[in-house]
Amino acid sequence: MKLNLNIQPLNTWINKEGKQPLLIAGPCSAETEDQLVATAHLLAKTGKVSALRAGIWKPRTRPGEFEGIGSIGLEWLKRAKAETGLPTAVEVATAKHVEEALAAGVDILWVGARSTANPFTVQEIADALKGVDVPVMVKNPVNPDLSLWVGALERINNAGITKLAAIHRGFSSYEKSAFRNEPMWDVAISLKTLVPELPIINDPSHITGNRDLIGYISQKAIDLDMQGLMIESHIDPTVAWTDAKQQVTPAALSDIIDNLALRKAEVKNTEVKDKLAELRAQIDKIDDLIIQKVAERMTIAEQIGKYKKDNNITILQVNRWEEILKKTTDYGKALKLSPEFTEKLLELVHTESIRRQGLILNEGIEQPKENLTHA
């Protein structure tokens, strides 16, 4: 299924001037006028930055933390823009933020992750944007809920905003990992599948929470054909008032971009195109076989379900599941498949088998409708 959003191409609303990839950079927070303007000059000097970002209003998890310098920071952004020529970008979370940012001549607005998670907040922002021709970027919600992300984009688009992009900044997770927010690339890929024309910009700063991993995530994003990066950069990250660990100096940012391997989304070489077509045809055949074999497995699972019903046996046999899991993950390792992938694949197949057997065992009992919303 595809969504029909009215979206202008990225290059019609932000001037990249041949810069690859598109780069939006600047401090997490505007702290002082000197800090912001000095950082802007250093970023402009790299020749790699297309727009200057800075947090003016900062939604914090707990009260008492620095919540942004407020409206006065907009005047600092105006000065930075006047002196460097860089367009400016600011996060907005209320209608008042929108009005003040536009009045100050801010060029690009973005909706933060916490705001995206609340349809009431998004609608308030959308209502404030009616009749305005300004680019708006929408960050993914805090939790991996594709419908919330899509809904926020639709609300902004319905307000008449056609200069629209998404920002992939990762998702909160209870599981500890090397990242501040889990990338969950599959959710971003699902969004791209729904809206192929929608530009997606990656935010490696918020995904990693660690400046040492920004280059790694940036490369991954570029390899997945994301259209740009939003990276936090501070003149001296060690003294930053917010998110110090994930900010880089303008010089370090320049090095990160220089070290990216840029690859083409389109293939023009006929020989390469033919070889890819041949290999993809092989994959298509294998995919057909996989689906066929999964269908055959489900047929057998249903037969097992009927046998369990006739003999009054429970659906779930824990020992049997553990046996399958161990045997198959070991086999997958031998075939150079990661245990994580094999286990996830097995869980999907196993869950569907249990669902089908449940329908057989509970035949005649009214079943609740399933929620098919992507999570």
Rank of each mutant, 00 (worst) to 15 (best):
G131N: 10
A38G: 10
V111Y: 04
I125E: 02
E31F: 04
P21L: 04
E99H: 13
G64R: 07
K78L: 07
L23C: 03
L23F: 02
V132T: 10
T84P: 08
P87C: 11
T121P: 05
I125T: 03
L109K: 02
A117T: 13
W110K: 03
D107I: 03
V98D: 01
E124V: 06
Q35P: 04
I72E: 07
P87E: 10
W57T: 01
F66R: 00
A128L: 12
E100M: 12
A25P: 02
L23T: 02
N143C: 09
L42K: 14
V37W: 01
R60G: 06
Q123L: 13
K130D: 11
A89S: 10
D107E: 11
E17V: 02
N118C: 12
P119V: 05
G85S: 10
E65R: 10
P21K: 01
F66K: 00
T88F: 05
D34G: 06
P135M: 12
S29M: 07
P135Q: 11
I72K: 07
A101M: 07
A93W: 13
P63D: 10
K81H: 12
D145K: 15
M137N: 05
A95Y: 10
I125W: 04
T39F: 04
T88W: 05
T121W: 12
R62I: 14
E100D: 13
I14E: 03
D34H: 15
G26Y: 05
V98G: 00
K48H: 13
P59I: 05
I125C: 03
S115K: 04
T46K: 13
S50T: 11
K45N: 11
G70M: 00
A80I: 06
D107P: 01
L86Q: 06
G73H: 00
N118L: 14
T61S: 15
N15L: 12
A95I: 08
R114G: 08
P141H: 13
G112A: 14
A51M: 10
L146K: 05
P119Y: 09
F66Y: 11
G85P: 13
N118I: 15
V111S: 03
L22Q: 02
A40K: 03
E91I: 03
K78M: 09
V132A: 08
K45G: 07
F120T: 09
A82G: 08
W57K: 02
D145W: 14
I69C: 00
K58G: 01
P135I: 08
A51T: 06
I24F: 04
A44F: 15
H41Q: 15
A38M: 14
K48G: 06
E17Y: 12
D34T: 15
V92K: 01
V92Y: 01
N15V: 09
T46V: 10
K58N: 04
Q123A: 07
C28T: 06
V132D: 10
A89L: 15
S71G: 04
K45I: 09
V134M: 05
S115C: 13
L23E: 03
I14A: 03
